[in-house]
Structure formats: C-alpha cells, structure tokens
Design a protein around this nucleic acid. Structure first.
Length: 599
RNA sequence: GGCCUCGUAGUUCAAUGGAUAGAAUAGGAGUUUCCUAAACUUUUGAUACAGGUUCGAUUCCUGUCGAGGCUACCA
C-alpha cells in the first residue's frame, strides 16, 4: 500500500476514534504532498471537517496530529499550518522501502487480472504516408497499451487499416493517368510516399478540371460534381465493390507498396500491433448488420434506396448507413469491425485512439450499436486526442502542407548528432555506437514532445523551430540516467547492502531534504502509474519522470555518492540512485523511450 | 444557426475545489582543482472578461468575448 493510502487509513481511524459521535465521512479525507516551503512530506486537509466538528482548524490539526504520532510509527513530526496538517515521515521508514524495491524491475506494475481490453490505434489510410499528426496517435496508442499492460490488463494492440474507399480510388486513378507504370522499385521512392504523391496529383488535376468547367460557366458545386476525374474515381469505387478483377489487382498492388512503407516507418517508430483489421474485410459484415437492423425496424430505407438511422430523439440528426447505390460508408464498416473485435476477444473494453475531429462520429457509433442491441456497445471508449497543428492551421495532405513522419525522424536524429558533437561528447564511442545514440536521443525527443501534453489538448508545432533537447525533454531524463549509470560503473563503490546494514532499519544519521525528497518521489510511482492507466494519460508519466530527474539532478549536485560521509549513507544513496534509474527506465520504457547508459 | 472542445508568464505546458497558481524556454545574475555543466543555483514575468455557488474557484454554474472542431451519399 502506498504511503498516501496508509495515511488516509490512519487518518480515518483517528477521526473515528477521536470523534465517534460526529459521523464524519472518511471519503472527504484528502492527502496531498506537502508544499516545499513547509516542513513535512504529506498533508491532510482539515477544512472538510472543521464545520461538522465546530472546531478551529488549528485545534483539530493538533489533536489529529498528536493522535497520529501516538498511534503510528510512521511519523516523526507534525505541524498544523492554517488548516493543513503537515506530517513528516520517519527516516526509519526508508531503509526497508529501499531494500524491498531498489532493484525490483517490476516496481510500479500491478498484478495480472482477466480484464481484456483492445487498443485500436494508428489506423492509417492507405492513400498517403504517415505524418507528424499521426505520430501523436501512434505514440499515444502504444504508450496507453503498455501502461494498461503494466497495470495487469490483457491488452490487444490493434490496427484497423482503412484500405478501401473513394480516397484510395483517387490515388489509383491518378496513377493510371499519370504514372506510366511507376513502381517503388523503378523510382526508388518509398511505397507509401509514391502513392501519396498520386493522391496529391489527383487533387491538382481535380482542381484544374473544376477551374476549367467554372471558366466555361458552371457554378462551383456543379463543376465539382462533373469533373471527369472525380467521376472516374466514383466509377472505380463501384467497380471495386463489384469485385472487378482488374481493379482489385491494381488496388492490391498499390496497397502492397503502402504496407511495405508503413512497416518500415512503424519499425523506426518502435511500435507494433498484435492484430490487423482491414476495412475491406469488415465492411461486408457491417452491411449485414445494417440489413438486420433494417429488418428489426431500428433502421429505415428512403425512397432512393439509402439506409438511415434516426437519432433525433437523442438530440442528434439522421445518419446515413448505406448509400442509395448500395455502397457502404465509414460508419458501415465501423459497425462490422466493432462486432468482430468483440466476438473475437470477448472484450471488457474497446478503446479507439482517434483524433477529436471524430468525437461526433464515435458518439454516433456507440449509440447505433446500443440501438442495435450489440453487446460490444457498452465497452466502446473513444480516447480522443487534439490534433497537431501548424502555426498556419491544420496539416492537409491534399495541399502538401504536412510534416512527414519519416522526414521528421531524420531531422531529429540529425539534431541529436549536431548537439552531441557541439557538446563534445563523442569521445569513447565507436561510429556504430554513436549512430545508435543519435537515434535514441532524436526519437526519444520526438516521442516525449508528442506525449508530454495531455491527450485531449490540441498542440501547435512550428516546423521552423526544431524540437528542443533541453528543459522539459526526454534528453534531460536520458542525461540523468546516464549520469547514474556512470556512477555505477565506478570501482570504489560499496557493496550492495542487505538488511544487516541497517540495525532494525534505524539510521544513525538523519536524512537530508534532498535524500528524503528523492525517496518521497520514488514512493509516488506506483500510484502515479495507476492513475495514468485509469485516465489513459501518458503525459502524467512524462511529467513524473521529468520531475524525478530534476530531483535527482539537485540531489546529485549537493550529495556525493562515492564520497558519502559514512558507509550507511553510501549504501542508502547507492540504493536510492539505482532505484531512480530503475524507475526512469520503467516509466520511459512504457512510452517506448530508451535511456542510454552513456551520453 | 445548432452541438462539442479550449482560452493560464513573451512562448510551450502543469495544477483529484485547497496553502503565496508550478515547470520549461526566452531575458537578467551566478556555479566547474570534487561521481558527466545536455547540469545546478538565483531573478523578472500569467488565470480572457463579468457575475454566481463555497470556509476556499484556474477548476463547478450562468452570461459576454475569442480560437478550433463537428454538423457530407469524404474517410
């Protein structure tokens, strides 16, 4: 049990013992970390109880504090400051804590339990390469999956590939028109980029045709409808759904190029999946669900043959589920995929990592599933995240304003190289080691940058400013880790301690503020990790690891480990920094960030 | 128009209704015969506005102003 939880229990018992008649609500007890300007480590907020007890906060604080000191060995001192009871943890708590945990690579993990959850993330379209905004999705989904695993959930990492639809046909049409048989091999261009280029090409041609039609007197709407290239794309979509062999062949070939490109990028990003779903394989199941819904009367058909659901009773609109020509829409395949996921894995929860522009879509999906009595409905959870925008607005692949993921990784690695060389830190590394190091630093900085902001919030990235490698960054954490490893490589270290070093866990020297502060920080980790899992929020881990590294750096600055005052302090500090490095690795590992031993 | 997010130092981000609103960066001033100065110490600087609820509001409620998203037979 964590300290905060222990204190809450003790406080609850104390309040009931002191004021048995008052009927106080123990859930009102809040335990905070004591602010650094006051003496103490943990603080109990007294205000919720002063009214019911009709006592002054100072009197209540003294009474509660004295009771706690008397009835528990956990505390060494207490002090009441204007409605807050500040408690100091006894030094002798820490040797036992360290001996139990300092070398425990599972510190922070929770026991396994049978709670199955799927995290669907990445879910790319196969008409364009992965860009900077998608990277936020990829890192977020990967990190959340790992965090949930650490907390004992059975996690399936899934990728739903949007491999069919009008947007794919656009790339295909443009390639047929302008490609002259170009392939990744013949051009030397990575497959996903090659296909993406034709998607852009389609939109250029489309614009030209629209302009020509408008010059001939058409209004904009009519011109967009009549543009020949758009009609060709729509015709191709119909041929695809009809199973036309030639169309399917081209589709399979071009998607194959894209998958090969994606695999390379995923590999570099350090992410992976347990299960792939393809929209082309789930949309038929979706159509079947729609047909069933039609029969049961939940859905209805309009005169033109299109199928709808009426959600006006829920305050929403009518929503299309099948087009008049019988082809499916985005929602159709989502219904199919949702049922398939549930049937295959018997999920308690199904998390969708999708940008917040689809909040409405996800709300509707869940609602439709409920109305259709699909058992998967209740487990659907939309992990909505804000989009990464440029200072000029959204990235648009149609307009070529995207920051490409592959380019961005190259740029970050280049930056890591440049700054390592500028700092003169390349000595003692082989060229191959340096290469690995630059990649570690550059990719870590990128991941951290995208994960450190609370998912819900949108973020703005200015490509003209490079991502910093100082301050609130992964580099800062990596550096703290490398410093610890450097100490641990030294030869004049004391032997690793065992319990006999600490007579009944009593210390002969009091802990300094720096020592206690670092220990308190380490003690927080399991609770913090549990919260991150509960809230699906990796940014909490970024924040935690950064402040831990900060606490270590300050500690490092005014405490010598190798030349500590005595053997007791040496052992204590050694365990403390080993545990610090351990927790930094554990937390960053969940985010897919590696920490070098030397940098 | 309707619905949903979001407005915090110059900038990028924090703060389960709790103490004097924290960091980072940028700006000012310092620290290296001693375990890695990619570090440390110190300083300047912010809750869009107006009400309300509360012992206490950045947080909850109402309104105003501002930004973004959704409201497609695109995905």
């Amino acid at each position: 049990m964590t300290l905060a939880a222990q204190i809450k229990c003790l406080a609850s018992d104390a309040l009931h013992a002191l004021f048995p008649e008052a009927g106080l609500d123990a859930s009102q007890i809040t335990i905070n970390l004591t602010k650094p300007e006051f003496k103490g480590h943990y603080t109990i907020v007294l205000f919720p109880f002063v009214k019911a007890l009709r006592m002054k906060p100072a009197d209540l604080g003294d009474k509660l504090g004295n009771y706690l000191l008397e009835h528990s060995q956990l505390f060494s001192a207490c002090e009441t400051v204007s409605g807050f009871l500040n408690l100091s943890i006894r030094d002798s708590y820490w040797p036992g804590f360290l001996l139990n945990h300092f070398n425990d690579t599972c510190y922070g993990d929770a026991p396994k339990h049978d709670y199955r959850v799927m995290v669907e993330y990445s879910s790319p379209n196969t008409n364009k390469p992965i860009h900077f905004g998608h990277m936020r999705n990829n890192f977020l989904g990967f990190a959340v999956s790992n965090i949930l695993k650490s907390q004992g959930r059975q996690v399936v990492m899934a990728n739903l590939v949007n491999d069919r639809g009008i947007h794919i046909c656009k790339s295909m049409i443009a390639w047929q028109r302008y490609g002259q048989g170009a392939t990744p091999e013949s051009t030397g261009i990575k497959g996903d980029h090659l296909v993406g280029d034709y998607y852009v090409r389609f939109n250029d041609a489309f614009k030209e045709e629209v302009n020509a039609l408008m010059a001939a007197g058409k209004d904009k709407e009519a011109a967009e409808k009549e543009a020949p290239i758009m009609k060709e794309a729509q015709e191709m979509l119909r041929r695809w759904e009809a199973g036309d062999a030639e169309t399917r062949q081209l589709w399979a070939t071009m998607n194959g190029w894209v998958y090969k490109g994606f695999d390379e990028t995923y590999h570099r990003l350090g992410i992976h999946f347990d299960k792939y779903y393809y929209e082309s394989e789930t949309y038929l199941l979706g159509k079947k669900i729609v047909e069933d819904g039609l029969r049961s009367g939940v859905l209805y058909r309009k005169e033109d043959g299109s199928v709808w659901i009426d959600l006006s009773a829920e305050g929403l609109d009518q929503k299309l589920l099948l087009r008049g020509d019988g082809t499916s829409v985005y929602m159709t395949q989502d219904l199919g995929t949702a049922r398939l996921k549930y049937d295959e894995y018997k999920l308690s929860k199904s998390i969708y990592v999708i940008a917040d522009e689809q909040n409405y879509h996800m709300q509707v999906l869940r609602l439709i599933m409920q109305k259709l009595n699909e058992p998967a409905a209740d487990g659907i959870y939309h992990l909505s995240y804000g989009m990464v925008e440029l200072p000029t607005g959204r990235m648009k692949s149609r307009e070529g304003t995207v920051v490409d993921a592959d380019d961005m990784m190259d740029e970050m690695i280049r930056l890591a190289k440049e700054q390592t060389e500028a700092a003169g830190k390349t000595e003692g590394f082989s060229p191959a080691e340096l290469h690995t190091l630059y990649e570690m630093i550059g990719l870590a900085a990128l991941k951290f940058y995208l994960l450190r902001v609370e998912p819900k919030k949108k973020m703005i990235f200015d490509p003209r400013e490079s991502i910093d490698l100082h301050g609130y960054t992964a580099t800062f954490i990596q550096y703290a880790h490398a410093r610890i490893c450097s100490i641990l490589r030294r030869e004049n270290l004391p032997l690793l301690p065992d319990a006999t070093h600490f007579q009944n866990f009593q210390l002969t020297q009091p802990l300094t503020d720096g020592e206690a502060g670092l220990l308190i920080h380490l003690e927080q980790y399991p609770a913090l990790l549990a919260t991150a899992a509960q809230e699906y929020n990796p940014s909490l881990l970024c924040n935690y690891a950064f402040t831990l590294a900060q606490a270590f750096n300050s500690f490092y600055d005014d405490h010598s480990i190798t030349k500590a005052e005595n053997e007791e302090k040496k052992s204590l500090r050694l365990m403390t920094i080993i545990m610090t490095a351990q927790v930094l690795r554990h937390s960053m590992n969940l985010l897919g960030i590696r920490l070098p031993e030397k940098m």
